[in-house]
């Protein structure tokens, strides 16, 4: 297997549970126990009310495509073999958005529709890190 040369996340104290869960094919987001709102990316204080009383929640992994682009240049050398590749912002059912790659789809604006249903898949990039990515939903 060729060496993985793209940027690799280095888990920090506040994000370690997210990356550990990704390894187990679970997509975690957080919910504030005080104001009740979901949020992403992980942090121990709620960005809505700064409460420290927050919990990890397993997201369904289903969502819709909020927007995307198709990249023809590899700004990081590790992406050279992937161009053109699709970056996407996905809105999860729980209402939060995250950056990802759209996979299992042709990098073609005629094939990619904003609003289309997508579902999470996990790509193992190192023994410790699996990246959540999204593909067109298999049903519904």
């Amino acid at each position: 297997m060729a060496e993985y040369r793209k940027p690799i996340p280095i888990p920090s104290p506040e994000t370690a549970p997210f990356w550990e869960a990704s390894k187990k094919r679970e997509l975690l987001i957080q919910r504030c126990q005080e104001c009740g709102r979901f949020y992403f990316y992980p942090r121990p204080l709620c960005p809505h009310c700064l409460s420290p009383h927050v919990e990890w929640v397993r997201a369904s992994g289903r969502g819709t495509l909020y927007t995307y682009n198709i990249n023809y240049r590899a700004t990081y050398p590790g992406f050279a073999a992937d161009v053109p590749y699709v970056m996407a912002i996905v809105e999860l059912e729980e209402g939060v958005r995250l950056m990802t790659n759209l996979v299992d789809v042709k990098p073609d604006p005629d094939q990619i529709k904003i609003g289309m249903a997508v579902e999470v898949v996990f790509e193992d990039v190192t023994p410790d890190i699996s990246l959540p990515k999204f593909r067109p939903a298999s049903r519904g």
């Binding site: 920090s12 927007t67 682009n69 700004t75 950056m99």
Partner: peptide, 28 residues
Amino acid sequence: DPTLPAAQFEAPYGVAGPPSVYSLACTR
């Protein structure tokens, strides 16, 4: 800085430089 959100939640997907960022907004 690897502890910053950008390093963990955007860069791994190839976000690098303004063209790859502003284009997302333009598509929408």
